[in-house]
Design a protein around this nucleic acid. Structure first.
Length: 260
DNA sequence: AATCGGCTCAACCGCTATTGT
DNA sequence: GACAATAGCGGTTGAGCCGAT
């Protein structure tokens, strides 16, 4: 794996961006799109490395960024997702579409982590720091167990989603050329559309306990990552259980208490 | 008014993952 | 398959701000 020489190159500027630099970067991207970050600085007339340009764009200049104070709902979402995902800021950011991973990371480190610590909650494990309390408190114990189950589920979801995206890329290429109306169907999610082939039984789990934004566990029985579990397919009114996880009932039952 | 210390957040650094040749 | 180039991620840093003294 090669390492990009980046800003070590002589003559490249570092440090805070000036309004003129921002303007140049914005103007270039508006006109030409993102393209290759490597070649962008020279084309845009910037004395910056591509990495610096990318960071400036994704964390500050992008037009779809919401800036300013985090709402209570956003805070709760971050805490809940951090309990599920740990320090996977980019994954957390996908559930807060207008916030950047850097902003969420900063907010966690400067506000939320300290607040949890003050409340006597370990910001890493999201468990009460006092283990004695835990052992005498069934609800807390159950909640911690549920979070652990949820973490496993979310990991499985991420794997499945990555795989499906890869598959759908390959499939969409062949579909474009061979099948105007392909069998199978598309799954719409807040962040992406996934195409599932007809021979793959879909597993779509939507966890949407207010104010938690909707999270979907998506998998297929045809893949290596069989995330069978609670299923609610398009049009269904009721949750259905698939698979054999012993923890499903606890997990499902715990959703209300741990997420609401 | 000056100084100090804590806080915030934009930006950088070093690394891994992915993609291309 | 090996290697290089590039993109992206998470941890860390440091300049600037602000309140306390």
């Amino acid at each position: 794996m090669g390492r990009s020489p980046c800003c070590d190159k002589v003559g490249l500027k570092k440090g805070p961006w000036t309004p003129e630099e921002d303007q140049k970067l914005l103007a270039y991207i508006e006109q030409h799109g993102r393209g290759s970050w490597r070649s962008l600085p020279a084309k845009a007339g910037l004395q910056r490395c591509g990495k610096s340009c990318r960071l400036r764009w994704t964390n500050y200049l992008r037009p779809d960024i919401k800036r300013g104070k985090f709402s209570l709902q956003e805070e709760q979402t971050i805490i809940q997702l951090h309990a599920l995902l740990g320090n996977r800021w980019s994954a957390i950011a996908t559930h807060l579409p207008k916030r950047t991973d850097n902003e969420i990371k900063n907010y966690w480190n400067t506000h939320l982590r300290k607040r949890l610590a003050k409340m006597g909650i370990d910001p890493i494990t999201h468990k009460p720091k006092n283990d004695a309390l835990l052992s005498t408190n069934d609800a807390q114990s159950k909640n911690a167990a549920n979070l652990s189950h949820m973490a496993q589920w979310e990991s499985a979801r991420l794997e499945a989603e990555a795989r499906l995206v890869r598959e759908s890329k390959i499939r969409s290429h062949s579909i474009q050329h061979q099948q105007p109306n392909p069998p199978g169907f598309a799954l719409e999610s807040p962040t992406s559309t996934l195409t599932v082939s007809e021979n793959a039984h879909p597993i779509i789990t939507r966890i949407g306990v207010s104010p938690m934004p909707m999270i979907e566990l998506v998998g297929t029985t045809s893949g290596s990552c069989e995330t069978a579990g609670i299923v609610k397919e398009e049009g269904d009114q009721e949750w259905k259980e698939l698979g054999s996880s012993n923890n499903l009932a606890d997990y499902k039952e715990g959703l209300g208490s741990s997420l609401s």
